[in-house]
Amino acid sequence: MMFRFEVNPSLCTGCRTCELACAFTHTKNQKPGRSRIYPIGYAKDEYVPVTCLQCDEAACIKSCMFDALRRNEETGAIELNLERCVKCEACVAACPFGCALIDNVHEEIVKCDLCGGSPACAQFCPTKALEYKKIA
């Protein structure tokens, strides 16, 4: 079964529910982590939720010298294996969309992993600006 993560910026109201959903999904030691998704305003009351595009030729995977980033063939997401991550920040520097992030709360590198197949941001998005759709 194949899924697609769809972003429809014109529906985004900048309510930032996705941010909260993401942070709370990635809670450790009772501390919510840093969100992997950000609605960013580009004009008055106009927002684009920016998150990882899970690129085919991903710069993050290429730049990781320690093989900590690998694609999950089931979900299509590029997942970061924290056990292998050394925090050298190469992926953060290399991602052309700025979507590999430094989480200062848990002192980790974080990036969107599509929540293993059911992204919380899409679930909670009130306007369906974010959708996780079955395509086949």
Partner: peptide
């Protein structure tokens, strides 16, 4: 060129381009 801007500015750039 991927290494020329920081992650924050790169995200802002994405928003600007998609926004337009």
């Amino acid at each position: 060129e991927y290494f020329e801007t920081c992650d924050d500015c790169k995200r802002a750039e994405v928003a600007r381009k998609m926004g337009s």
